[in-house]
Design a protein around this nucleic acid. Structure first.
Lengths: 261, 261
DNA sequence: GACTAAGTTTCACATAATGGAACCAAACGG
DNA sequence: CCGTTTGGTTCCATTATGTGAAACTTAGTC
C-alpha cells in the first residue's frame, strides 16, 4: 500500500487515472502517466486497460496514446441534464440574455471551484460544451464569490482552503482575509462583482441561486467589458438578475433538486 | 445483467452502476437500482458509496436519491475537447450552417450507435450540450448510415448486430438486408439520406468524414423538414457538405487524430 | 405497539487487485 | 551488427479488497 490519502478502492484509483488523462488535455503516452502517477507500472497498466475496455479511454494504437473516450461524453450528457441547473435554467437564461444583451454565465460549485454549466454569448451565439464543463477559480470570479458568500461556515472553510489565491490581475483579492470582507459585503448586498479580478477588462455582476432553505444551488452572472460598460451600469441590472435567480430557484425547488456539496 | 459481456473487475461494475443511474434520466432511489441491478444489496450499496465519495454521483440526503455528479460534467468537457471531432470541426460547421441556413449535425460512432457531438440549429441559435452527447440509432439516421457505409466488414458486422431495427416510421429500413443495399448506394454516391426514416417529416443529407486511410472519423449532415424543402433540393448541397467533410478530415489528420473503434 | 419496507452494518470467506521481477520488442549507438 | 537502453506487456505468489448472506437499525403503517 502506498501512502495514499482517501483514494478508496480500485475505482478510486481508476477515476484518478481518468482525471490524470483529462488534465493533460491531449493524448498521453503510457510512460508519461507512469512518471507522474506513483502507481507501479503493472498496476497503472491494468488500470488503463480496464478503462479502455470500458470505453472511458480510447487507445490510439498508431501512436500508443490514451485519450478520454466517447462513453464519457455520453455520460456527461446525462449528468448535465439531470444534475445541473442548466436544463431548468435555460429559458430564464435566454430571457436574461435577451434583456441585457450581454454574456451570461450559469455556474455551480464543485470542490471549491466554479464549474460553468451554461453560457449565453452576447455576440457569438453558439459555443457550448466548449465552455460548459469548464472550471475556474472561485475566489476571483463573480459567480464564485456570489456562491462562497452564502455557504455555511464549514463549507466555506473547506472551499477557502482549496483556493490558490493566485494574483491574476492587480485587482485580484489574494488573501482569505480580503476575500472574507468581500463576501460579507456580497451577503449584505445580495449580489457580487468581478472587478477585473480574473482578467483585465472583464467585469461582471453575479447573483447566487439559493434554495428555500438558503442552500447554494448555483449562481448567474452578467458579464461585460470595461470598454463597453461600467460596473455601475452593470449593477443596474442586479434586480433583474436577482429576479431571474429567484425564478430559477423556484423552478429547481419544484423539481426537487438534489442537494450537493 | 449477463447480457453485456466483459464486466471486468470492480471498476467495470462501478461504471455499470453509473450507466444505470444515467439511463434513468432522473434521481433514483437505492431500491429502484437494487431491483434492476442483479448485484446484491450490500455490493450495490458499497458501489454507490464509492461513486458518491468520488463525486461521480451526488446523493440527495433529503430524498435518498442518487443522481449523476458534477465531476462527470467536468470530465466531459475534457473528453469532448480532446477526443471528439467537435473542436476541430467547429469553424467548418459554422460555415456550413451559414451557407445552408439549415440544421447541422456532427456525429461519431460509438458502439454501433450514433453519438452527436455538435450541432448548429438553424432557427434557434443556442441549444447545445442538450444535444451534444445524445445518442441515436445508426441504421435510420443520415449520419449513422453515412458512417456505416464506410466501415470495414468486421466493424460493420459488429455494428449491425447492435441495431434494433425498430420501425420508427413507414420509411424505416427495418432489416439488415435493406440496410446493406442502402449502404452500397451510399458508398457509390458518397452521401446518404434520411428519408423520414427516424421521424416523420424530418429529412437530411449526410456525408461521412474519412481519414486518408479511409477510416471513418465521423459524419456531418444537413437536416430539414419536408414542410420546408425536399430531398432533391437538399441533395444540391451535397457537394458543399462533402467539401466541408473533406476539410474537417484534413484538419483532423494534421492533428493526428486518435483512431477509435 | 406489532408489522413491514428501506437502508446500513457485520463478518467469514474467496476473489480479484497488487507489484516486483522477468520478459519482449523496438529503437539506439558504438 | 550486435549489445544496450527505453517503452511496453505478461507472470505469479502474496494478500489486500471486495463480496454477499444475514443480522440489524430505522422510519413508516395499520
Amino acid at each position: 500500500m502506498g501512502a495514499e490519502g482517501h483514494v478508496d478502492g480500485t475505482v478510486g484509483k481508476a477515476l484518478d487515472v481518468l482525471d490524470m488523462v483529462a488534465s493533460h488535455g491531449r493524448p498521453v503516452r503510457f510512460s508519461d502517466l507512469l512518471t507522474q502517477s506513483a502507481y507501479p507500472k503493472a498496476t497503472l497498466y491494468r488500470l488503463l486497460q480496464t478503462l479502455t475496455n470500458q470505453g472511458m479511454l480510447a487507445f490510439d494504437a498508431g501512436q500508443g496514446t490514451y485519450a478520454l473516450g466517447v462513453r464519457l461524453v455520453r455520460l456527461a450528457h446525462a449528468a448535465w441534464a439531470q444534475s445541473s441547473l442548466a436544463p431548468i435554467a435555460r429559458p430564464y437564461l435566454d430571457e436574461l440574455a435577451e434583456k441585457t444583451g450581454e454574456t451570461i454565465h450559469l455556474a455551480q460549485m464543485d470542490l471549491g471551484q466554479v464549474l460553468y454549466v451554461d453560457k449565453r454569448n452576447a455576440s457569438k451565439p453558439v459555443e457550448m460544451f466548449s465552455s460548459a464543463g469548464k472550471v475556474g477559480p472561485a475566489y476571483c470570479t463573480g459567480v464564485g464569490k456570489a456562491m462562497l458568500a452564502f455557504l455555511d461556515e464549514a463549507a466555506l472553510q473547506a472551499a477557502i482552503s482549496r483556493q490558490s489565491f493566485h494574483r491574476f490581475t492587480p485587482h485580484t483579492l489574494d488573501s482569505p482575509t480580503l476575500l472574507k470582507q468581500e463576501l460579507a459585503a456580497i451577503r449584505d448586498r445580495g449580489h457580487g462583482f468581478d472587478r477585473e479580478e480574473h482578467e483585465p477588462g472583464i467585469i461582471c455582476c453575479a447573483v447566487p441561486i439559493l434554495s428555500r432553505q438558503g442552500r447554494v444551488l448555483g449562481a448567474v452572472s452578467v458579464t461585460s467589458t470595461t470598454a463597453r460598460t461600467s460596473l455601475g451600469a452593470l449593477e443596474e441590472s442586479a434586480p433583474l438578475i436577482k429576479d431571474i435567480a429567484a425564478r430559477i430557484a423556484a423552478e429547481a425547488e419544484s423539481w426537487r433538486f438534489p442537494e450537493q456539496t
